[in-house]
Amino acid sequence: MTPHQHEFEAAPGLPETLPSDERILWQGAPDAGQLARRVFHLPKVAAYFAVLIGLQAMHLAEQIGPTGELLLALVPALALATLGLGLLGLWCWMTARTTLYTLTNRRVVMRIGIVLTLTLNLPLRVLAGASLRELPKGYGDLPLALPDNARIAWLHLWPHARPWAYARAQPTLRCIPQVTAVAAQLTEAWRAAALADPAQRAAAAAAPALRPEPESSPLGGAFAGQRS
């Protein structure tokens, strides 16, 4: 589980050339629209600004007569709300544009960060578990549980972290399309990697196929999902 800070990529999303026996199974990035709604909560922030401006308009309407003067008085608040929503939307777009998730037959690689790029190498054989959180229209999250001896700060991961898991932060592939297909690929890649490890061979052989369920479980058992 190695974090790298870098400016150069040997290949898109990869800080170094893959070994000859390692291959890319899947690459993808978060969907900007889903990030805006599910992670940055842009519609809720917009509704919050709308309520504040509406309350201000009601207050000013008692003091200002003509509609033109009322609208003029609301210009500063409207400008600030537009600026705030614009910056939040830009942050969301840049997050989606600069993120690249890679699944190989040996590891998950997460290239994250807008200004300072951070690459996380997560070997499949050491992952403690994973889960599937399905979102509408085929999108979803894939949280990856780390072993007890590996810790990554939640703030270093966000927004690529499982929501509400602060004490034991879990790197998460956020808002990716065709999430069930990616989860199936991850399951098979883990099973293949575990079969090569004598200590995990029995668990890998017994691992069932992916099926969405209410709770998360170890990779040695199965993936599990949360619907929302």
Rank of each mutant, 00 (worst) to 15 (best):
A206C: 01
A11D: 08
E7Q: 14
E213W: 13
T117E: 09
P123Q: 06
Q200Y: 01
R133H: 14
G140I: 05
I112D: 02
E188K: 02
V109D: 01
L78G: 12
Q56M: 12
S228R: 15
H59V: 08
W26L: 05
P30E: 07
A203W: 08
A161T: 12
V45Q: 09
D148E: 13
P143N: 04
A96E: 01
V108E: 05
E9A: 12
L70Q: 09
T2D: 12
A203E: 15
Q34K: 05
G140M: 04
D148F: 06
W154G: 03
L18H: 09
K137A: 09
L35I: 00
T82P: 00
V182Y: 05
F40T: 00
A169Q: 07
A207P: 00
L88F: 04
A77M: 11
L122D: 05
L71M: 13
I53C: 04
G33C: 01
L103D: 06
G138D: 04
R125T: 14
V51M: 11
A161H: 05
A153Q: 15
A150K: 03
H41D: 06
A199Q: 15
A96F: 00
S216G: 15
R107F: 04
F49K: 04
T82M: 12
T172S: 10
P136R: 08
W158H: 12
R211G: 03
T104C: 10
A196E: 15
A193F: 01
A207S: 13
L210V: 15
F223T: 00
M58I: 06
N121R: 12
P212R: 11
W190S: 01
V126C: 03
L60I: 04
H41R: 15
L132P: 01
A204W: 08
G86K: 05
V115G: 03
L195C: 08
I24D: 00
G113F: 11
G138H: 03
A145E: 07
T172Q: 05
I24K: 00
R151S: 12
S131Q: 14
A128D: 14
T82V: 07
E62K: 14
C175W: 02
Q226W: 08
S217Y: 15
R227S: 13
P12K: 01
R133S: 13
G13Y: 10
A61N: 11
R211Y: 08
P30Q: 06
G129S: 08
R97S: 10
A161Y: 02
L55E: 05
L210W: 11
Q27F: 02
P43S: 04
R107K: 12
I64E: 07
S216C: 05
Q200V: 03
P163C: 07
T119A: 12
G129P: 10
P147C: 02
P208G: 13
A189E: 10
L219I: 03
